[in-house]
Lab assay of single mutants.
Amino acid sequence: QVLVIRIKIPNSGAVDWTVHSGPQLLFRDVLDVIGQVLPEATTTAFEYEDEDGDRITVRSDEEMKAMLSYYYSTVMEQQVNGQLIEPLQIFPRAC
């Protein structure tokens, strides 16, 4: 299952990153890619938005798994409803 992660860049749009092994993705892998997209920032975590629009911070593989399972459940709903699949949007955080 292909996963598209949209890395939101403060004040300048976003970069889409296509991942072919989504469920095996590790927290460190995401930080590495964010580091390539935002080389001047030191990113130690990132956030995503849940169904209520609240930002949830991801700082570990466990939290990463929770984010992915949340995302895959929303994708299934979108597929069932015949909607366009939205990329998983993440917001890098420099701490």
Score class of each variant (00 low, 15 high):
81 N>H: 15
34 I>Q: 01
33 V>F: 11
79 Q>M: 08
87 P>T: 00
22 G>S: 11
93 R>M: 13
33 V>T: 07
11 N>I: 07
35 G>H: 11
49 E>F: 11
13 G>A: 15
43 T>N: 06
60 S>N: 15
65 K>D: 12
35 G>L: 08
36 Q>G: 04
69 S>V: 08
68 L>S: 01
84 L>T: 13
93 R>Y: 05
48 Y>K: 00
18 T>G: 04
58 V>D: 03
10 P>W: 03
18 T>D: 04
73 S>D: 11
53 G>T: 00
31 L>G: 04
35 G>W: 09
33 V>P: 04
27 F>C: 00
89 Q>T: 15
35 G>Y: 05
81 N>R: 11
51 E>D: 10
50 D>T: 12
8 K>Q: 12
65 K>I: 05
4 V>D: 05
17 W>G: 01
60 S>A: 04
60 S>G: 12
19 V>A: 06
20 H>K: 15
85 I>V: 15
59 R>P: 02
10 P>R: 04
68 L>Q: 02
90 I>P: 02
57 T>D: 04
48 Y>S: 02
44 T>L: 11
88 L>A: 02
87 P>Q: 05
42 T>S: 12
17 W>L: 06
48 Y>E: 02
74 T>F: 11
49 E>S: 06
51 E>Q: 14
38 L>G: 05
59 R>T: 09
70 Y>R: 11
27 F>G: 00
84 L>P: 15
45 A>N: 03
66 A>W: 04
22 G>W: 11
65 K>H: 09
80 V>W: 06
44 T>E: 12
6 R>D: 00
92 P>H: 04
53 G>H: 05
78 Q>A: 13
35 G>C: 05
25 L>C: 11
90 I>R: 01
71 Y>L: 01
58 V>M: 02
25 L>S: 05
94 A>W: 13
72 Y>C: 06
59 R>C: 05
74 T>K: 10
12 S>T: 14
37 V>I: 13
36 Q>T: 06
88 L>G: 03
88 L>N: 02
9 I>Q: 05
69 S>C: 08
95 C>Q: 14
85 I>F: 06
49 E>D: 09
82 G>Y: 05
62 E>L: 09
50 D>G: 13
35 G>R: 09
94 A>D: 11
17 W>E: 00
39 P>N: 07
39 P>M: 02
9 I>W: 04
64 M>C: 15
6 R>F: 01
44 T>H: 07
81 N>V: 12
45 A>R: 05
25 L>M: 05
53 G>F: 02
11 N>D: 12
49 E>G: 01
37 V>G: 01
89 Q>P: 04
63 E>G: 10
91 F>K: 02
44 T>G: 10
24 Q>K: 04
3 L>T: 07
12 S>F: 11
7 I>N: 01
87 P>F: 07
92 P>M: 00
3 L>F: 15
55 R>A: 02
52 D>S: 13
44 T>D: 14
79 Q>R: 11
82 G>L: 05
29 D>L: 01
10 P>K: 06
53 G>E: 01
41 A>W: 08
18 T>C: 03
58 V>L: 00
